[in-house]
Every structure is written in structure tokens, then in C-alpha cells.
Simulated assay, not measured.
Amino acid sequence: MDVLAALFHPLEPCLLMLCTDTSQSQSLERYLNPLSLPVEGLQPELQPTFDYEKSRHKVILVEPGRGERQKGVRWVDDIRRGNTWASVLVALTGADPSIRQAYQQAGADHVLRLPNAEPERETFYVELFQNPDYWNLAPPVVDPARLCLEDETRRLDLTFVQVQVVLALLYAPQHQLSFDDLAQLLGLNLRMYDVRVVEKFVSRLRSSIRKVFGTNVIQSVRGSGYRLNRGCISPPPSALH
């Protein structure tokens, strides 16, 4: 079951693409036609009045031109003001780290390097939306009562602390926690803990989830902490009622 569909019924598994050139969204729909993934294009001038909350898209893809990268940060910020559940992907044909960080701070879940050549773009997008890290209609559910993550065919047993960390990431703003937040969950002394203890804990949790479900669900946020990829883990069933 798509948990977002349960929370926001009816939810159509479709993609919204925000870009200046509408031909880009038409090309994307052609690329993704074999995956039966519909694409809706949105021009930036229509963006201020677009109802992101009502749209219920699973993924919103932002592809700004080279001269629109600062504008693109504002687009992502506007999206996040009305929509907290869709995965926001930003595709850039090369950018310095400060721009990439600005997109992440505005609420982008992934900032991706987009190839310049048209044939390479098609391969890039087809592979992207075959990857459960970016497009997963049936993510595993965290079950705090049975201390596990599971989907229809797989199960990963977790410790009590691991479950608490997953839940905290799920409900944190932007699904992000600082090193101090995580240290507190681990019961460490906030005045003198070793950040490497936090890093080792998260690394083991991330590796365990990847081994069972094949997805990289936790991202490092440089110098700050960690973020849970949006839509990659579902909240416990009780949260749906």
C-alpha cells in the first residue's frame, strides 16, 4: 500500500516537473512512458498560484536553467510551504556546492547532476525512476510495537533505540536531525560525547536497511547531522488513523 495514498486519498502516482521550457516535461514523459509514469509540466510563472497541497504528486522535479538557479531555490521553498510529503528532486547540469546546499536547505530531498546530452538524459531519468531511493510506492513500514521494518516480503528486526531514531527522523522537520539530537536519543552526554559514536550507530543502521531493502534511506548532512529520504520509510499504521 502507498502510505501517502492512505493519508491523502486519492493520490495518483505521478510526477510534476517545474521548468521554464515545457518541451522538457514533454521529453521527460516520453522517456518515462515505458514505466507508465505520467508527467505534468508546470511553468514557473504559474507556480505562485499552483496549489501544491491539492495536487498530491508523489514526486516534484525541478529543472532550472543555468540562469535560473537562484530562482530555483525560491521555487523549492514555495513548494515546501504547501507540500511536505512529496519528494523534491532538483536536476542541475553542474553546480558549485553552495548552490547545492541552498537547494537542500530550501527543502530539496536530492540534488542530482544532470547530463547535458539528450541521449544521456533519457538513460539518466529512466534509471532514476527505476531506483527505489527516488520512486517507491510501497516503502517498508516501521513498527514500534514489534521493533522492526517490514514490507510485504521482507523484515528487518531493530533494537528499541534504532526504532526511536527512525521515528524521530520521520517526524522531524525536513526529516532531519542534528548530531546533538541523535546523541540525546542514544543517551550520550551532550557536553562530552564523541561524534564518531553517532556516526558509527547511523552507519550500522543505514547498512542494515540497505542490505535488506536495497535502498539508501539515510543521507549525511555535512557538518550537521543526518536526513531520512522522504517517502522511503512509512510511519507506523497507527499514524494513519
Rank of each mutant, 00 (worst) to 15 (best):
residue 11 L to V: 15
residue 11 L to E: 07
residue 11 L to M: 05
residue 16 L to M: 06
residue 17 M to V: 15
residue 25 S to I: 13
residue 27 S to Y: 08
residue 29 E to H: 12
residue 33 N to A: 12
residue 35 L to S: 02
residue 38 P to I: 10
residue 38 P to N: 05
residue 42 L to T: 03
residue 43 Q to P: 03
residue 45 E to S: 14
residue 48 P to E: 00
residue 51 D to N: 15
residue 70 Q to Y: 11
residue 70 Q to C: 03
residue 79 I to H: 10
residue 84 T to P: 01
residue 84 T to M: 12
residue 84 T to N: 08
residue 86 A to H: 11
residue 90 V to R: 03
residue 92 L to V: 11
residue 94 G to C: 02
residue 99 I to T: 14
residue 100 R to M: 13
residue 105 Q to M: 06
residue 106 A to M: 12
residue 109 D to F: 14
residue 120 E to S: 08
residue 122 E to Q: 15
residue 123 T to Q: 12
residue 136 N to L: 14
residue 140 P to E: 02
residue 143 D to R: 07
residue 146 R to T: 00
residue 148 C to F: 10
residue 149 L to G: 04
residue 149 L to V: 09
residue 149 L to N: 06
residue 153 T to W: 05
residue 158 L to D: 07
residue 159 T to W: 08
residue 164 Q to W: 01
residue 166 V to W: 06
residue 170 L to M: 10
residue 172 A to W: 12
residue 173 P to L: 08
residue 176 Q to V: 09
residue 177 L to T: 02
residue 178 S to W: 14
residue 179 F to P: 00
residue 186 L to Q: 06
residue 189 N to C: 12
residue 193 Y to H: 08
residue 202 V to Y: 00
residue 206 R to V: 09
residue 207 S to M: 11
residue 216 N to C: 00
residue 220 S to V: 14
residue 220 S to Q: 14
residue 222 R to A: 11
residue 223 G to L: 05
residue 224 S to I: 10
residue 226 Y to E: 00
residue 228 L to H: 04
residue 229 N to L: 15
residue 234 S to P: 00
residue 235 P to M: 04
residue 239 A to Y: 14
